[in-house]
């Protein structure tokens, strides 16, 4: 290409590509924007969204599977076991460490820890990022009732057992056998 031709070609291609670009930007100038005005409007959050955790405390059995699965060790949980019932002390997630990887959700045998759709978690104090997932501390009313029922049942059972043992002992005594060592426990 001669110098003159390339000179003219430069001008033509420059003007042409500028016009092409302006056509595209101009087209979008006339279109409606695609953004939403965030605090007023919000985009839908999908079901699988990995936001702040929530715990179905009733189901949780304090097995520590989630805490073990956590790569950053941000889950701490503690509960006192009363037979089958749990007295909750704490179940905290440290959101300063949490990286929302969802690895704690999969190993749960009871499927009780989930990630919710809440994402705005703004505080002015770092300690507030230490989030307690428990909806109640200690034992739930149902658990208390169940515990009481279980205890009563146990007592009854024990009483029944004791009565039975006493009966047997009595029977044994009447038969004149030497007393057995188990009797002392009854």
């Amino acid at each position: 290409m001669s110098v003159v031709a390339s000179y003219i070609n430069n001008i033509v291609s420059g003007v042409k590509s500028t016009l092409v670009g302006m056509r595209i930007t101009g087209k979008y100038f006339l279109k409606k924007p695609i953004t939403v005005q965030y605090p007023d409007e919000r985009l839908p959050i999908p079901n699988r969204y990995r936001g702040i955790h929530y715990l179905e405390q009733e189901k949780c059995i304090n097995c520590l599977a989630c805490a073990r699965a956590c790569p950053v060790d941000c889950i701490e949980m503690d509960a006192v076991r009363h037979g089958k019932e749990l007295e909750w002390v704490k179940f905290t997630i440290d959101y300063q460490k949490c990286m929302f990887c969802e690895l704690c959700v999969y190993p749960c045998p009871k499927d009780c820890i989930h990630m919710g759709n809440e994402f705005a978690f703004v505080t002015t104090d770092r300690s507030e990022l230490h989030h307690d997932l428990l909806s109640y501390k200690g034992m739930s009313r149902e658990a208390r009732i169940r515990k009481r029922e279980a205890e009563e049942k146990k007592k009854k059972k024990a009483a029944a057992k004791a009565a039975k043992a006493a009966k047997e002992a009595q029977a044994a005594e009447t038969e004149g056998d030497p007393p057995q060592p188990t009797e002392g426990e009854a």
Binding site: T25, G26, Y28, F29, K31, P33, I34, T35, Q37
Partner: peptide
């Protein structure tokens, strides 16, 4: 505003 609308957004609102 012009920049916003060219870029499919609103600009100051």
């Amino acid at each position: 505003k012009v920049a916003g609308h060219i870029q499919c957004r609103y600009g100051p609102m």
